[in-house]
Design a protein around this nucleic acid. Structure first.
Lengths: 151, 151
DNA sequence: ATTTCTGCAAACGTTTTGCATGCCA
DNA sequence: TGGCATGCAAAACGTTTGCAGAAAT
């Protein structure tokens, strides 16, 4: 997925191409496998654009890109979120300590959780919600304070 | 688990028994299977105490109860959290649409996710993080706006 | 020209903090 | 009495909103 594909998709939806949107698309295209927080994306987009972009514009643009289906967001442990291009069919396993995220093939996670959820009358949403745990590095660290966002 | 058990456990740790703590313990004991947000707990504790309790006191008391291991918290889809008594060994499956939460036996969820996580160098934390999905009732509702907390 | 986007600033909800006072043991 | 716990008020964090003006088509 390169910039043009993103930009063309935007235009195909009748949306306008503004400098802010172009910069955001550029950042996403430059690092297509990245999982960025809106804040990260904002920083990089400002560099890309060479001028300030309001954070609310980033959020609104992300809304738009998701409506069009080009981007997905995932809620991560600290209460925040990350976005990534929608092209790769993967889900996420995130360390709640260091934030490390590994991509897991969609089928793998569906196979593990689908039947369990079915049994309880649910269908799991592994697109928007990561499975949370501890990576091996963090697993051997000492226990931490309770109840804070990070646990 | 009744109030006395909670209160005794507090004292056994050398902690002080204050009206606020007593009310909070009472609320938890009154509804031992409840999954309450800190806000819910706060409201109920004020009723129980018959006087105002500061919300920050509720948070600090929850911190304390968790340090002692009497209470667990779980992060839920809307960015908030719920707390419940630590006695039942269960994890959670939560609907991100209506908030409905079903308890899942710990072994069942561990069996489903443990091997997957291992394969990727993780150990899952299903105590503090719910598996998120859609309950069957909500699953047939129309799609909703993207990127908002509730998706 | 018209409709969509943007920046700004303010507000949101949940949670955390500093500080001075108060109360339990 | 001594130290833990509380209330209060303010701040933190990520996110959302209303509004008026700017810009893309």
């Amino acid at each position: 997925m390169d910039v043009d594909a993103l930009v063309d998709a935007l235009r195909a939806e009748g949306l306008r191409l503004t400098p802010a949107r172009r910069a955001i698309c550029q950042v996403l295209a430059d690092d297509p496998r990245a999982h960025l927080t809106p804040g990260d994306l904002h920083e990089r987009a400002e560099v890309e654009a060479g001028r300030p972009i309001d954070l609310s514009t980033v959020y609104r643009t992300l809304d738009t890109l998701q409506e069009v289906g080009l981007v997905h967001h995932v809620h991560v442990p600290d209460g925040g979120s990350v976005v990534h291009l929608a092209d790769a069919d993967h889900h996420h396993l995130t360390c709640d300590r260091c934030g490390r995220t590994v991509d897991v093939p969609a089928e793998e996670i569906a196979a593990a959780l689908g039947p369990l959820a079915e049994r309880h009358g649910f269908s799991v949403d592994t697109v928007h919600f990561a499975v949370v745990g501890r990576c091996h590095d963090c697993a051997r660290l000492p226990p931490e304070e309770p109840y804070r966002s990070g646990s």
